[in-house]
Nucleic acid binder design. Sequence first.
DNA 1: GGTATTACTAACCGATCGTTCAGTTAGTAT
DNA 2: ATACTAACTGAACGATCGGTTAGTAATACC
Lengths: 209, 209
Amino acid sequence: MSENGTLRRGRPGYDQQGILDVAVAAFIQYGYDATSMGVLADRLGLSKSAIYHHFASKDEILDRALDTALGALEGVLEETDAAGGRAGDRLDHVLRGAVHVLVDKLPYVTLLLRVRGNTEVERRALSRRRAFDKRVTALVSEAQAEGSLRSDIDVRVVERLLFGMINSIVEWYRPGGREDADKLADDVIAVALDGLRMPTSNRVQELLG
Amino acid sequence: MSENGTLRRGRPGYDQQGILDVAVAAFIQYGYDATSMGVLADRLGLSKSAIYHHFASKDEILDRALDTALGALEGVLEETDAAGGRAGDRLDHVLRGAVHVLVDKLPYVTLLLRVRGNTEVERRALSRRRAFDKRVTALVSEAQAEGSLRSDIDVRVVERLLFGMINSIVEWYRPGGREDADKLADDVIAVALDGLRMPTSNRVQELLG
DNA sequence: GGTATTACTAACCGATCGTTCAGTTAGTAT
DNA sequence: ATACTAACTGAACGATCGGTTAGTAATACC
């Protein structure tokens, strides 16, 4: 499954990444807990025990997958912080970046968003997620303070609704459909920032203050 | 668990609704597939087989729970259709109603939103959910056509993002917190319809056309 | 051909799964 | 006291679970 120019030693077959991709697809289809190693083996066309050559446990597969998703999302925040700028612009950048990560690593982020907390691996992932949310909330708060965003709604509610919308992408977005990642990011941000309603004259009056 | 004024015949203990409530709480905490009947029995303080007096199977518990959630959501649509009016107003009504259902039946709707499709019960629930979504999308489309909502974004994307936001409530809303259902509905609709951004003079110009 | 590397296997393990069965228990009604 | 109603039990079942073990298999390299 590793098709670089160099010849690989050893028996041809799946590598770790190949197993991981198939595992993640099964985990998001059936749920992690409902996906037995037997189902996974069937899906790979291997025996159950062959999987244990590549990963020590079912848990390790999950851990690796969640790390991929979280790493990408955290990367968006790092890159945004490094760039600096007004909070409103940085938030815009984070939202676009998040949408791109969701689209690029759809199966992995989908798995992450469905984590429950039954095992230590899951609890660690949830903890990293909470830290991510906290940093985004701080950014929203800054954007409210600088006047870019409305401040009549609690900052935590704002962050939750915003990422509720963005995260919903994993439930319905299909790559290769009508919308690519850029268009999707544009739409999400348009809805989030400017809303759905058409302006009325009353609204314009409100806006004029 | 049934504490009406009349005396109930039979041995005191849980009734079906009592078992169901505890089951749903466990299902949303651990996930349906990861909640064994043993875990549920522990939680109820009963034996595993006692559960089978009340419900024929684990599946039947799930079926009953999902029906509760779907029934409530479908009820919002029925009531809105019966009332009639402009599409924009009906959509507003559906959104408020949905938020209220989410808050009032939080555990049940939470369970519904996490259904995967592994069993016939789950697939039936997903089918009902799709029918619900389809009706809301039709309403959004009407509101776009009547000019209440922006029509530069695909109607299906709009419906998905909208309910993505609303449905996210089940992941973070805590009853008895700072926001009651009415305030929450107000906030959700404000964000959805009017967005998050503060107006700038460029925006006002755009709005003026 | 032999060695190193890497992927894969069948049989097995102890534990847990959802469910069944033949009972027992705790209340009300007569 | 007996019958009815409704809730509950321990033991057992066949199936499945995640994982282990002692191998086998297929390639590249020398």
